[in-house]
Design a protein around this nucleic acid. Structure first.
Lengths: 212, 212
DNA sequence: TTATTTAAACTAACCGGTTAGTTGACCTTT
DNA sequence: AAAGGTCAACTAACCGGTTAGTTTAAATAA
């Protein structure tokens, strides 16, 4: 129950801050992002960042947790209920892809955490990344057992799948420059999706077979 | 010509600075790295950074150019002279992999530049990344024409190959945590190499064939 | 002499964080 | 209903630590 409110409009100040912070942290990192800029992008006084979130670190953590919560609910939402591990794996990859497409800041924020050995490390891995990675590995194993998937190293394959999916979005700005067109445009993303899934399918299934 | 003080020869002060700066910029980014720390890691006075490299930005740029020069010479050194585009492509991927394994700072520095839309963008892409990417795409096209490689989108395949190669090294710290062991240990790198090349081979060749 | 190097003090700017005070909606009490 | 009080939300101005970059004076080597 909000007690005192100022004038009329207030699309949740804290949310605006969170959104602006997400953009700046993704683009410039914790050290590179400027609180003043975040504040002005959120159209609030700088002091509000510290009013709602204790300090820069806390704000950064809030951004991460907010994003990871969405990540987890997305991933869990789209688990296919099929007997075919091959199909389940492709659905997993596609779902992960779609989440990234919908949250372009995510890969950059995670990449930053991955590069420095920050303190966030532990909870990010334990609460979010490890469960997802384990599920992928488990599905690959099941696929191999069911002879739907080639006999490959499940863990490395998981790294490869997640890596080739993530890197496209994480490096989109520079790749767009190389390609000479905007790779985050809806059409480009759709093309990437099919190309990626096609590549996966043919890198996983045994010779001469198809997942169906 | 080393002119400096001290009886024992200095392994080129500027080089020590460059090396230390590379480590700190890779780990913390341009904004996050501290000149004082770079200086003490290089065992020189802070003023030397500004004596040899005008300012922090220039030092950062020097680090990038130094690394990219090595990147280019490595890549050009290992071009296979074979008629088989499929083999040339695998050699290209393997060579890129080996360069990354030998220069663990490279992917992190490039990733950072890729994430923010910095001014370095243009020359990095134009002078280094674009030529390499083009060569990969060209080789894939030749492979398709020679029916050694499946009929796939060459550009997206290039993204996938480079992405799955790079992301392993760029995210090594966090992946190591997930895997529960050091993924940059020589043995782990060797395992990654074979797993990666195996995955590539079976994702590229037409059904039932092999590159040989 | 001249180029390189150190140590140390210094500055200017930047930037995270604080503070004192204001505003306005809602809640009493009269 | 008028008057007064309360509290969360908000602002402008400021504070103090940090850090890029400079300067100075001295030392060392070629």
């Amino acid at each position: 129950m909000p007690r005192g409110r100022k004038k009329q409009e207030n699309p949740e100040t804290a949310d605006r801050i969170l959104e602006a912070a997400e953009n700046y942290f993704a683009a410039h990192g914790l050290a590179g992002a400027r609180t003043e800029e975040i504040a002005s992008a959120a159209r609030v006084n700088k002091a509000m960042l510290f009013y709602y979130f204790r300090n820069k670190q806390h704000l950064h953590r809030a951004v991460l947790e907010n994003l990871f919560r969405q990540f987890r609910s997305s991933v869990y939402a789209l688990r296919e209920k099929t007997d075919s591990p091959g199909r389940r794996l492709l659905a997993l990859a596609a779902g992960y892809f779609d989440f990234l497409a919908a949250h372009p800041n995510y890969p950059r924020l995670v990449q930053r955490e991955a590069m420095e050995a920050s303190g966030n490390f532990k909870w990010i891995v334990g609460d979010y990344l490890d469960p997802f990675h384990s599920e992928v590995v488990r599905t690959i194993r099941a696929g191999i057992a069911a002879r739907e998937i080639r006999n490959i190293d499940p863990e490395h394959t998981a790294f490869s799948i997640l890596g080739m999916t993530t890197s496209y979005f994480a490096a989109a700005p520079i790749l767009s420059r190389i390609a000479g067109r905007d790779l985050l445009a809806p059409k480009a993303i759709a093309a990437r999706r099919t190309a990626l899934l096609d590549f996966l399918e043919h890198g996983l299934i045994p010779e001469g077979e198809t997942i169906r």
